[in-house]
Design a protein around this nucleic acid. Sequence first.
DNA 1: CGGACGGTTGATCGTTATCAAGAAGAGTGG
DNA 2: CCACTCTTCTTGATAACGATCAACCGTCCG
Lengths: 266, 266
Amino acid sequence: MHSNVHISRTEAPSIVQLASNAMRSCALCGADKACLPELFHTKDAHVFDKLIMGKRRISRNSSLCQEHDKFNMLYVVRFGQFKVLNRDPTGMLRVMKFYMAGDVIGMDAIASGSHTVRVMALENSEVCEISYLHLRRAMCEEPQFVERFLRTMSSALVDRYERSSLLSLASLDERFASFLLDLSEKYGRQGYSSRAFRLSMSRSDIGSYLGTTVETVSRLIARFNAQHGVSINGRLVEVIDRKRLQAVLESDAMPRSPPVQSPLFE
Amino acid sequence: MHSNVHISRTEAPSIVQLASNAMRSCALCGADKACLPELFHTKDAHVFDKLIMGKRRISRNSSLCQEHDKFNMLYVVRFGQFKVLNRDPTGMLRVMKFYMAGDVIGMDAIASGSHTVRVMALENSEVCEISYLHLRRAMCEEPQFVERFLRTMSSALVDRYERSSLLSLASLDERFASFLLDLSEKYGRQGYSSRAFRLSMSRSDIGSYLGTTVETVSRLIARFNAQHGVSINGRLVEVIDRKRLQAVLESDAMPRSPPVQSPLFE
DNA sequence: CGGACGGTTGATCGTTATCAAGAAGAGTGG
DNA sequence: CCACTCTTCTTGATAACGATCAACCGTCCG
């Protein structure tokens, strides 16, 4: 039935794979549109090329790095997807974040010199390795590089409130709608369809990310298919009626009451 | 009764206040022990001093910065405390983080050039203003400064998973225990007592941070006083039995304990 | 004094975790 | 290609936890 539902996601990478070992240049890399949205800039391409130490394949379900691994390299996702696992205060591993092409991995480790989270591939993936040592050296020589890297870290900071914000939502319907819309937007930005895409994570990954259980995710999906303008079949997602999906987030709307519980002032 | 429960927290700052306008040097600043745990390093003090553009007082319940404010300055908390408010996907403001002395504020804004969150003082507070322009200039001149700043941003990254981790915890008991232990540890690192301290945030701030309501926070406190080795009276917290508090988090840590599951009964 | 605010407590109801079982895929080896 | 197994996913029944609504208390402030 819906067994070969790959859409077009893996096509571009698969073409590039053959040449990938010989090809270090970002300018020539087939992934350049999706990749390095902040760090990369065409006029710096020659500088940046020197920093790419190599590429690394990570097969589905194996880890790019984990807690306590020594830190040498930053990684930029070339193609594929990853999940970030971190321990909650009771010691359970939870999914904190999903990475896609162009995302920079490893900046957490700069502070302590070793990685703080496990990063696991959701599908067969490839990353570019960037030597942190070389990057720092490059920053001394080309000061505009400093600014660029600071911006990259800064937007990672902003981004980290995302799941925290999502978990603030009282109802799971809101969380799930928010999750889907966010994914859709990310696929859109990558140049894929934001209307139809394939989930690369399991139901239990979704559950972990949303702060709930597999069973509830299953029920959410059933209910969203029936009521909220999407069609989720296996891992294939189709956004039938985006407005209806967005409405889940706006339903809470009490017309114009101050949404905060902080004192009025001014 | 417990009306003047200030413990010793504000003493050191209050001594410094008088001289604060004249005194820009980190080396002379009374807050130096608590402040700048990463960015500051004694041998760089002379460089760093040049970056401090001034100090700024923020009175209780007013904002240091908010969404869309233009970004010029980073701030380092000199004394006092702040909460960070961010909008969840439905538009409600939620408490994402509490800042204490030494924390660096504003790094989110580097990417976009404007602030992304509201930062509000929980008590009368003071920050050092650091010109981002000057900081970048300093980084060009003194390369080891780059490394230091990257480390500061990196540990901010690690830190941002904290609330996300906390909200992953299923039960509110776990979240609240985690919250208290974390606060206790932070006060300890600041040189104050980790056994007794004063909450500077309201119950509803706590509720927002923990992802619950004021009422539930109230009930949590009552129950924790009775059962979990703490005494919380108004805003005064005393950790009576730390192990008991920690035990709340360890309840389900190990693989298989012997609960009641047996189909046989007597 | 009255009103606003922060905090506590009570009663009720709904959402969601949990336990349990079964269905559907995916991988493996014959 | 099929039979087997293991994992992932779905569905059902039940109970508990926490949100919600509502009332009340104490404090601060004009």
